[in-house]
Amino acid sequence: MAPERESARREAGRDLGRDRMPAGATATTRPRARLDQPRPRRPRILPEWDPEAFGKLSERIARFIGTGRFLVWMTVVIVVWLLWNVSAPAPLRFDEYPFIFLTLMLSLQASYAAPLILLAQNRQDDRDRVNLEQDRKQNERSIADTEYLTREIAALRIGLGEVATRDWIRSELQDMVRDLQDGHPDGQRVFPAERSGARDVDDR
């Protein structure tokens, strides 16, 4: 009886689990993140900008700040500011002595100018680093080409040292002719002297 009760209990548990599971829900239908597809972009609260465009703009501002034109315009603005707030009628003055608003404006300008100049310097340092890396690679290629050409020239010199020159061949032939003439039994010359001023008719 005990085995029958145990089997009946198992069947009742399976039926209860089937009743709790929704229709059509299996292990294969669970939502899974697919690895062959990119994830959807999450909404960003902060605004997006192009780092390259922002870097170029910062370089332009930094270049303009470092010019004499900026210093002249800044001096003109400050002088006009001071003269207006000193000599203008009291109701029209917007920054009376001790010119606190002017001080705040100059501080704000300095607080923005310093990071822009640092950003421009960092971009220039990155460009210099890339240029130095390219110059180093170019120097390495030039050194390798120079070493290759040096080895080729040395091989050519060694090869030319083993090539038979015309003078060497002529001297060898003269030695052979001399040996043949010395060893001829009749004492005659093997190669008779050419007749000067006469043409060889047989060679025609």
Rank of each mutant, 00 (worst) to 15 (best):
R5M: 08
E11A: 14
A12T: 03
G13R: 15
R20Y: 08
R20H: 08
R20A: 10
G24W: 13
A25D: 07
T28S: 15
R34G: 07
R34T: 06
R34Y: 01
L35S: 14
Q37N: 09
P40F: 05
P40T: 09
R41E: 12
L46K: 12
E48D: 09
E48H: 13
P51F: 00
E52M: 02
E52D: 12
F54Q: 05
L57G: 04
E59V: 03
I61Y: 01
F64D: 10
F64Q: 05
I65T: 04
G66L: 01
V72E: 03
T75Y: 06
T75F: 09
V79I: 10
L82H: 02
L82A: 06
L82K: 02
W84Q: 05
N85L: 01
N85E: 08
R93H: 03
R93M: 04
E96G: 13
Y97S: 11
F99V: 01
F99A: 04
L102A: 02
T103W: 12
L104W: 11
L104S: 11
L104E: 07
L106R: 02
S107A: 15
S107Q: 11
L108M: 14
L108Q: 08
S111A: 15
L118C: 14
L119Y: 07
D126N: 08
R127L: 09
R129Q: 09
R129F: 11
N131T: 12
E133V: 03
Q134S: 05
D135W: 15
D135F: 14
D135S: 12
A144V: 07
Y148R: 12
T150A: 08
E152K: 09
L156E: 04
R157Q: 08
I158W: 14
L160D: 01
G161M: 00
A164Q: 13
T165R: 01
R166S: 09
R166T: 03
R166I: 02
I169M: 08
S171T: 04
L173F: 04
Q174T: 09
L180S: 07
Q181D: 15
Q181W: 13
G183N: 15
H184Y: 06
H184L: 12
P185A: 10
D186L: 12
V190D: 07
P192H: 03
P192T: 03
P192I: 01
A198D: 10
D202A: 12
